[in-house]
Design a protein around this nucleic acid. Structure first.
Ligand SMILES: [Mn+2]
Ligand SMILES: [Mn+2]
Ligand SMILES: [Mn+2]
Ligand SMILES: [Mn+2]
Lengths: 220, 220
DNA sequence: ACGGATTTTTAGACTAGCTTAAAAATTAAT
DNA sequence: ATTAATTTTTAAGCTAGTCTAAAAATCCGT
């Protein structure tokens, strides 16, 4: 069975290739896993006969279907545990990730299917990210960056791109969370900042850096 | 922070000293953890400057108060997770142990307190074992081995001594679980076997080996 | 096409944990 | 009190995973 470290490497490669649309290179993996490039090369060499990925020296690495399947199951577990922590144990969305990072490695197929049922087969996690089903299929959604809305448009917050704690806590403070109604009152051309009504309260100004990390579903 | 292996060693020492009423010796630990005596000696040497226990060559090992506290917290976590698995996810009592053996190592103090609250601060786990509170205090109970009952006495099953899967499945088959009402119809002196009414069904015969592993609360 | 910067790999060494085989200490039996 | 059996420790060596420093390969600007 795969060790926790192995699993973390596979998931890292999955996340990086997904983001980059190409092979994951050594430095990117090292940075993602907070380890040295030398360790990564070493690990890739040691793992490369386990058929999780294709590795060519100096060319980076990409997952095989076996690797993708494993990574997807890990993402499934991670996100289901996040839902459990947020919905059942009342953790806030900025607290769930670190704990789920551990829980995702618990070995038991039955466990995750029972957990899924207990949670009512949720489709999205506390950050609005889709939860793959047991077969690995993600439910995609028609979403837009809040930064793409024009003056007068309304939406409902459905997710966040950035998962950084400070960012999420800033959103808490603004009372922005999943399901929050927003309406763009004004867009400032100069810096792309936005004046936003949040749940019909008085408008607040949000920087582009913030709005481009919030996903919304458009509202009539 | 303590590694999973360290935690397993501390818990093993705790369980063994509790059972033996004396220092835990190398072979006992090795057997408990399914490892070699040499590994245990090695580990004890390496851990002995971390103040979890007192170790004297050839004399075995016993926990310090720091070690006891750690072991108790592990038992608390283990049993709370078992309750979660049984009560919320519908696992049977013979399935929960192996998964809890992994879950007990998840690092987060908040998590376990929230889980405890979510479960309604249970006092006993699915095997009837007491769950220490956050301060490490166990709630003891006035219980007897089913084998100590005399003809005519009634009781309610409150726990099991043996946690073996086959034993627990045998009890499932007999429809004996926590809360089951039992009445001793007859005691056979020769082999100490017992004729038992289970939930007022027709009586079944149980061997001494079985009855001495079932704990009951006496009933008027 | 070359030189410098960047990225990646190699080399060598470390820790945690484990193994088997042999040596030493302890315990038990005569 | 010896000897024999048992338990424990030591010795030597293995794997997984990590590190730093140095070498090698690739990439990039001119
Ligand atoms: Mn992880
Ligand atoms: Mn998430
Ligand atoms: Mn464990
Ligand atoms: Mn239990």
């Amino acid at each position: 069975m795969a060790t926790q470290t192995e699993e973390d490497y596979i998931k890292a490669i999955f996340k990086i290739t997904e983001r980059n649309q190409g092979a994951a290179n050594t430095n990117a993996i090292a940075k993602y896993l907070n380890t040295s490039a030398a360790s990564v090369t070493d690990m890739l060499k040691r793992l490369s006969d386990k058929d999780y990925f294709h590795y060519e020296k100096y060319k980076g690495v990409y997952l095989t279907s076996k690797g993708i399947q494993m990574a997807t199951q890990l993402v499934r577990k991670h996100r289901l545990w996040e839902v459990f922590l947020a919905k059942k144990l009342d953790f806030s969305w900025e607290e769930v990730h670190d704990i789920a990072e551990q829980l995702e490695h618990i070995k038991s197929d039955t466990l995750i299917e029972k957990l899924d049922a207990f949670l009512g087969h949720p489709k999205y996690d506390p950050h609005g990210d889709p939860i793959p089903n047991a077969e690995g299929k993600f439910t995609l959604r028609n979403q837009f960056g809040l930064s793409t809305l024009s003056k007068g448009e309304k939406g409902i917050v459905v997710g966040v791109k950035e998962h950084d704690k400070d960012f999420l806590q800033y959103l808490n403070q603004l009372e922005i969370g999943l399901g929050t109604e927003v309406e763009v009152i004004d867009v400032v051309d100069f810096d792309h900042s936005i004046k936003l009504k949040i749940n019909n309260q008085e408008a607040t100004s949000l920087s582009y850096k913030v709005t481009k990390n919030i996903y919304i579903k458009k509202q009539a």
